[in-house]
């Protein structure tokens, strides 16, 4: 990764607040300071409801921080982040388009001729292992296959930054590992800057160059930042057996555990703390 250029994504003390229905203000994330360098894979881990997705939406420009700033390659972010591709947690494929059309749309929006877009889309479907499923509609695909189409849909636009919001959350354990390896393989080809949100610490360590830990919300903060000393290329299922992996896991879990318990306690009692 290259740290001489301005960071791909930089959050400078970003605070995110929502106005509740009764006009009180709910502070989801407070003074988050985070950078993702060129070609760096950063994984964010935190307890449920801590505002991980909120932070990602800020980086995407879908949410404006109440205070603080967002810079993309050194430029302050205004409006949507045009450099970023976003893979959502929920299914976000167009249900009325086939897998092929869902992937091709990314290029067609940019004004690429349809024939070219379809050809490139077929290529991307092959890269994610779905060459034979081009004519299927999303509801005819399994959850894992839909995620693959989603990945191809985002990557065909060749964004410089990849934002991923628990993309493999709803998948079963085996499919998650396969998808993780696929992601690393595709990422290894051109090393985009990645901001990857997950609740799974093992997944974060196995995938990331850095693991960032958030405290339990509300007023969630970034409370830890670890470099992952594991060599690349990695295989997700094998890397979990390594000593360094276990040592790092134990170290981070020591911090994360308390927050998870706090987050759990908070989510099991309804009223939120308000400012």
């Amino acid at each position: 990764m290259d740290t001489t250029q301005p960071a791909a994504v930089a959050l400078d003390d970003a605070t995110v607040a929502f106005r509740l229905a009764d006009s009180r203000v709910y502070t989801a994330v407070e003074q988050a300071r985070l950078t993702v360098e060129h070609g760096e894979f950063v994984a964010i881990v935190g307890p449920t409801g801590c505002g991980k997705s909120t932070l990602l939406n800020v980086a995407a420009g879908l949410l404006k921080p109440a205070a603080g700033a967002v810079r993309i390659f050194g430029q302050p972010l205004a409006g949507l982040n045009k450099e970023a591709g976003y893979l959502f947690q929920a299914d976000a494929l167009f249900p009325w388009k086939t897998a092929l059309d869902n992937v091709a749309i990314g290029l067609e929006i940019k004004g690429a001729p349809r024939a070219l877009a379809l050809e490139r889309a077929q290529g991307w479907l092959t890269s994610v292992g779905l060459a034979a499923f081009a004519g299927r509609y999303p509801h005819m695909l399994s959850g894992g296959q839909r995620k693959r189409v989603g990945l191809a849909q985002v990557l065909i636009r060749d964004p410089k930054i990849l934002l991923m919001d628990e993309p493999f959350g709803p998948l079963d354990a085996q499919t998650r590992q396969i998808m993780g390896n696929l992601l690393l393989e595709l990422w290894n080809a051109d090393r985009k800057a990645v901001l990857f949100v997950t609740h799974d610490l093992e997944e974060a360590i196995a995938l990331g160059d850095r693991v960032v830990i958030m405290s339990a919300g509300p007023r969630a903060r970034i409370i830890g930042d670890w470099k992952v000393p594991l060599p690349r290329p990695r295989d997700i299922s094998e890397v979990r057996m390594e000593k360094d992996f276990h040592a790092l896991h134990r170290e981070i879990w020591g911090v994360l555990k308390d927050e998870v318990m706090k987050g759990y306690a908070q989510s099991s009692q309804a009223p939120a703390e308000v400012a």
């Binding site: 879908l62 982040n81 959502f88 929920a90 976000a92 749309i105 990314g106 985002v154 636009r157």
Partner: peptide, 14 residues
């Protein structure tokens, strides 16, 4: 209309 779908479409540059 599905909010995620609209967000996704926007992020794809629509």
């Amino acid at each position: 209309a599905n909010a995620t779908l609209v967000d996704n479409a926007r992020m794809l540059g629509m």
